[in-house]
Simulated scan of single mutants.
Amino acid sequence: MTQRRVEFLYLTQQDVIDCGVTNMAMVMNKIEKLFSLRDKGETILPDKVALRWGDADSEAQTGRINAMPGYVGGDVDVAGIKWIASKPMNPRHYNMPRASALTILNNAETGFPLSVMDGTVISAMRTGAATGVAAKYLARKDSKVLCLIGAGTQNHTQMMAVKTALPGINEIHVYDISMDRVKAFIEKAREEVPDAHIEACVSAPEALKGADVIVSATTAVSPIVKAEWVEDGVFISNVGNYEYEFDVVRKAQKIVTDDWDGVIHRGIQTIAKMVLAGELSKERFHGNIGEIINGKKAARENDNEIIFYNAIGMGIEDIIVAKEIYDRALTLRKGQKLTLWEEPYWV
């Protein structure tokens, strides 16, 4: 008789961590594969759905919940969705993280759920990994100085990923409008990258001085970085919002994204604002990172190029990492099996 009971594996955040999600090299390997599959047309990425309530004009305070579905093909062959809340006032009001997420995986053949797991750490790690993969192809191999604009949670995984991609990074500059955040960030960062000198900077131009790599992850609604502060040969990753004045992008020899259409559709980062204002045409766009990974477009071609990278973040990134965690959980016998039904109510 056919087994008709449907079970799925529930994984707590600790289960997900125990299955290796904080191994940045592993996550970067999965994200690089995802970018390659995306370029080959082997993924499906519907539009992100953003749920907002309260004052929609002050999202930096009220936050949102995003639904990010997708399918990853190839030998991954799994569907899923990330349901992630971002409530910026949580740390201040509740002493709780800004972001919380659940990731659901579904069997691609039957549609039945395979797993429900904490997606919070996966989300942070894959976002950092996207910059790390780009840095592998677009930053100078001998890069030594990393500049971080923003001292929030996200820049921890950005820092981990850049250091993984560029082991020669030995100096890290950190700038934020809150020096208290900078101090707290550096205390934790010294545990994460103990072989690098990390210093607090009181201004953005001080932080950018001598930088080989610049990563910004803030909620800024007006530019922080000016073109005259950006030196030749730098790799820039715009992770957060509107963090660079238009002239920074104009100064770049290459403009690269994870997904051009997604960046423009979201409309809040520097490149998108330039396009929407008629200040940047797609002819200036070099390519998506997947095209570079697959050898269709050139990576860095000389040490003097300024390369501007903009990642929007895609739910399929969470799905490919979550599938690896699910497979490891089965091997390691982590998590708890829960029953959806013993017998279907309707067939």
Results as ranks from 00 to 15, higher is better:
Cys147Ile: 08
Ala151Arg: 00
Gly152Met: 09
Thr153Arg: 12
Gln154Ser: 08
Gln154Val: 11
Asn155Asp: 04
Thr157Gly: 05
Thr157Ser: 09
Ala161Ile: 05
Ala161Arg: 01
Thr164Ile: 10
Thr164Arg: 07
Ala165Tyr: 00
Ala165Asn: 03
Leu166Ile: 07
Leu166Phe: 00
Leu166Pro: 01
Pro167Ala: 15
Gly168Val: 11
Ile169Val: 11
Ile169His: 01
Glu171Phe: 08
Glu171Ser: 13
His173Tyr: 06
Val174Thr: 06
Val174Ala: 08
Val174Lys: 04
Tyr175Asn: 09
Asp176Tyr: 00
Ile177Trp: 04
Asp180His: 11
Arg181His: 09
Val182Gln: 02
Val182His: 02
Ala184Leu: 13
Glu187Asn: 15
Lys188Met: 14
Lys188Pro: 06
Lys188Gly: 12
Ala189Ile: 08
Ala189Asp: 02
Ala189Val: 09
Arg190Gly: 11
Glu191Cys: 13
Glu191Val: 15
Glu192Lys: 15
Val193Ala: 10
Val193Asp: 02
Val193Gly: 05
Asp195Val: 13
Ile198Arg: 00
Ile198Ala: 05
Glu199Tyr: 09
Ala200Gln: 08
Ala200Phe: 06
Val202Ile: 15
Ser203Trp: 00
Ala204Gln: 06
Ala204Leu: 10
Glu206Leu: 12
Glu206Asn: 08
Glu206Cys: 09
Ala207Glu: 01
Leu208Met: 09
Leu208Ser: 03
Leu208Pro: 01
Lys209Pro: 03
Lys209Leu: 13
Lys209Ala: 15
Gly210Asp: 06
Gly210Glu: 06
Ala211Ser: 07
Asp212Ala: 08
Asp212Phe: 00
Asp212Glu: 03
Val213Phe: 00
Val215Arg: 01
Ala217Ser: 10
Ala217Pro: 03
Thr219Trp: 03
Ala220Phe: 01
Ile224Arg: 02
Val225Thr: 07
Val225Ala: 10
Lys226Ile: 12
Ala227Asp: 05
Ala227His: 06
Trp229Tyr: 09
Trp229Gln: 10
Trp229Thr: 10
Val230Pro: 00
Asp232Arg: 12
Asp232Tyr: 07
Asp232Met: 14
Asp232Pro: 05
Gly233Thr: 09
Val234Tyr: 02
Ile236Trp: 01
Ile236Glu: 03
Ile236Gln: 05
Gly240Thr: 07
Asn241Cys: 14
Asn241Trp: 05
Tyr242Thr: 12
Glu243Ser: 08
Tyr244Gln: 12
Tyr244Ala: 14
Tyr244Val: 15
Glu245Leu: 11
Glu245Lys: 07
Phe246Trp: 13
Asp247Cys: 15
Val248Ile: 11
Val249Ala: 10
Arg250Tyr: 11
Arg250His: 13
Lys251Asp: 06
Ala252Pro: 01
Ala252Ile: 08
Ala252His: 00
Lys254Asp: 01
Ile255Phe: 02
Ile255Lys: 04
Thr257Lys: 04
Trp260Glu: 09
Asp261Ile: 12
Gly262Ala: 11
Gly262Thr: 08
Ile264Thr: 08
His265Ala: 15
His265Trp: 14
Arg266Ile: 14
Gly267Asp: 07
